[in-house]
């Protein structure tokens, strides 16, 4: 009699354990966004991320190679054909305007960094990231100064480029970036520097927030291309009226 009762109790308690285990499993599986990711899974995601990154790099390399080949074919054809040569040079111009080719030339490099930490909370927030509009107006001023190509931390500024605070990052071309911001601009170095450093200009405004800013004029600097995809889903050209 005693044995049966103890068996019943043990059976019941193990039933409880099994119940809790299965509930736990369903809750951890059901709420991946809720921060309940098992350690092993996080590791797996990390591994996957690494793999995808290498794949991306490989794909980018392939793209570059293919583009080089295309260019070679284009120049070859252009040498043969007079009309085609005109088309190719037009294409090159439009590519430059769209920001889909690497460009180099004289210009200026502006480095923007957060103020030197004066209190213990300074590490918790970034002045330049909270005031990302300063970056936007800096880009605006650069364009005003006649900059022909601009990049921030390696992200080329093109027609669709956004600079916006998203959570703890400032997204540029949907790529999260963080200080220090290195802004490169191709144009007349003197014009760029004097446009930025004019009295009550953008640099002065930025310095009033305590930001550390350096401007360097360069004879030669390179700005990377925009590596995303330009796609127009809504806009289409208007047919010229006859």
């Amino acid at each position: 009699m005693k044995k049966i009762s103890s068996m019943l109790i043990i059976g019941f308690l193990t039933l409880c354990i099994g119940l809790v285990i299965s509930i736990q499993i369903t809750t951890t599986q059901g709420s991946e966004i809720g921060g309940l990711i098992p350690y092993a899974k996080a590791q797996w995601y990390l591994e996957e991320l690494k793999q995808v990154r290498t794949e991306k790099d490989a794909a980018l390399q392939e793209l570059n190679e293919l583009e080089k080949r295309l260019e070679k074919i284009e120049t070859k054809k252009a040498n043969e054909d007079f009309i085609f040569a005109g088309v190719v040079s037009d294409l090159e111009k439009y590519k430059m305007a769209a920001g889909t080719v690497d460009v180099k030339g004289s210009g200026a490099v502006i480095t923007v960094d957060d103020p030197i930490a004066t209190d213990e909370y300074a590490d918790d927030h970034s002045v330049i990231m909270l005031r990302y509009e300063l970056l936007l107006s800096l880009v605006n001023k650069l364009k005003e100064a006649g900059a022909e190509a601009i990049s921030i931390n390696g992200q080329r500024i093109i027609v669709t480029t956004e600079i916006s605070l998203a959570g703890n990052n400032v997204n540029i071309n949907t790529v999260p970036t963080a200080p220090p911001y290195i802004i490169k601009a191709i144009g007349n170095p003197q014009t760029i520097e004097s446009t930025l450093t004019i009295r009550f200009g953008i640099i002065e405004q930025m310095k009033s927030y305590g930001l550390r800013i350096q401007i360097e004029q360069k004879d030669e600097l390179e700005i990377p291309r925009y590596s995303g995809i330009l796609k127009f889903r809504y806009a289409e050209p208007v047919e010229a009226a006859e």
Binding site: K3, S6, M7, L8, I10, G11, F12, L13, T14, L15, C16, I17, G18, L19, V20, I21, S22, I23, I25, T26, T27, G30, S31, G34, L36
Partner: peptide, 25 residues
């Protein structure tokens, strides 16, 4: 006794999966 344990455990897991109970995370 060991048999009761195994039965309880398996039964509990099966019950938990089939009954869709949950508690606050």
């Amino acid at each position: 006794m060991l048999v009761a344990m195994v039965i309880g455990l398996v039964g509990g897991i099966a019950l938990g999966f089939s009954l869709d109970i949950s508690y606050p995370t």
